[in-house]
């Protein structure tokens, strides 16, 4: 029954095509078949080695990065040695030999990332909890997409917004208020001391926080969504409040993933360049107040590298090497944690 109707469905042109192809195949000499097989084997091997070489290329990239940083930093390593890590003075023009120490940018990198994380982690986790537990269903998707899109905006946009809009706002309205509130208190008074400033570590940290906020939110939301609904439903069924479900079910279940995500964000904050360069002030001196100018490793490289030479350039390479080693360990730890979570999910 079925056979004839199928045959009728094949149009004349199709049939003739098939016939021609079959004819050509029949005419082909037997030797060509062996040749074709050989060609297959050759292209097979070529493709295999092409992919393998490309994969090894990724390893070479990492090796090349480390090697080039060491080569660039070598003169500075030899000249300054370990004192580079403890010297605060940065005097590239000094005669006869420049005195260069990395303490200022290293301090700035740590402090700005720390402040940024202190602001962004609680807020980011709060938004992630909001997105997975509290937000009305119809809003979750658009909200989540918006956050992910914001995470993709280039950092220079955040940087220039911070320079034109946020820094003046913070210096005129937020800093004076904090300075007044903390003046006279022993330690806080000096941390939040001094005149308000457009260019300061604090302003840079806030921009950094706003920049990594979508990133932290997106990762923690993904991690929170790995919690099996049954677990949460049972907790709700026992009469738990939203907070108790989050506190006793969601967070314990996802702890490793959340820490991994936070460390990934930390790796980003440590190495971020364009968001901080405009407003950090580029001062290598370490000052008590976070409202005074500072610099980070990446900001120092970005603003000085193009006009540097000799030992000065080498010192910037050394800073770059330190930054890379630092972020390497942070990112490696983050990935190991996230991998552990994935394995748990797979099991």
């Amino acid at each position: 029954m079925d056979q004839p109707s199928k045959g009728a469905g094949v149009s004349g042109a199709d049939v003739s095509d098939i016939a021609i192809e079959a004819n050509a195949a029949a005419k082909a000499p037997v030797a060509d078949r062996a040749q074709a097989l050989k060609q297959f084997a050759l292209s097979d091997k070529t493709f295999y080695w092409l992919t393998r070489a490309s994969a090894i290329c990724v390893l070479l990239l990492l090796g090349g990065i480390i090697l080039s940083l060491i080569v660039g930093a070598w003169p500075a390593i030899q000249h300054f040695g370990l004192s580079f890590l403890t010297t605060q003075r940065w005097a590239p023009q000094l005669e006869p030999a420049p005195i260069l120490g990395g303490l200022g940018p290293i301090y700035g990198t740590f402090v700005s990332s720390l402040i940024a994380m202190l602001i962004a982690v609680p807020v980011g986790l709060g938004i992630a909890i909001f997105l997975t537990e509290l937000c009305p269903m119809w809003l979750r998707r658009p909200f989540g997409v918006a956050i992910e899109l914001l995470a993709g905006i280039p950092s220079i946009i955040y940087g220039m917004w911070g320079f034109f809009v946020l820094a003046p706002f913070l210096a005129d309205h937020v800093q004076p208020w904090i300075i007044a509130a903390t003046s006279g208190i022993p330690v806080l008074g000096s941390i939040f001391g001094g005149p308000p400033s457009y260019l300061s570590l604090f302003n840079a940290s806030v921009v950094l926080a706003i920049m990594i906020l979508p990133f932290i939110t997106a990762i923690s939301r993904d991690v929170f969504m790995t919690v099996p609904p049954v677990l949460k439903e049972s907790a709700y069924g026992l009469g738990c409040t939203t907070w108790e479900v989050v506190r006793n079910v969601v967070i314990p279940y996802t702890r490793v993933g959340v820490i991994g995500g936070v460390m990934l964000a930390l790796g980003r904050a440590l190495g971020e360049t364009m968001a901080v360069t405009f407003i950090i002030g580029n001062s290598f001196r370490i000052q008590d107040s976070i409202f005074s100018p500072g610099t980070t490793i990446s900001a120092a490289i970005a603003s000085e590298f193009a006009e540097s030479g000799g030992l000065h350039q080498s010192a910037l390479f050394l800073l770059g090497l330190l930054l890379f080693v630092l972020t390497f360990f942070v990112l490696a730890a983050a990935r190991l944690m996230l991998m552990r979570l994935e394995r748990a999910k797979g099991a």
Partner: peptide
């Protein structure tokens, strides 16, 4: 085994500071 190593290294390169890439290309 190589795949695990490459995947791990690749994930690190994925979030490596972009200014470091600039330094690398400057030398290379």
């Amino acid at each position: 085994r190589l795949t695990t190593v490459i995947r791990f290294i690749n994930d690190i390169l994925l979030s490596a500071p972009s200014i470091i890439i600039g330094l690398f290309v400057y030398v290379a």
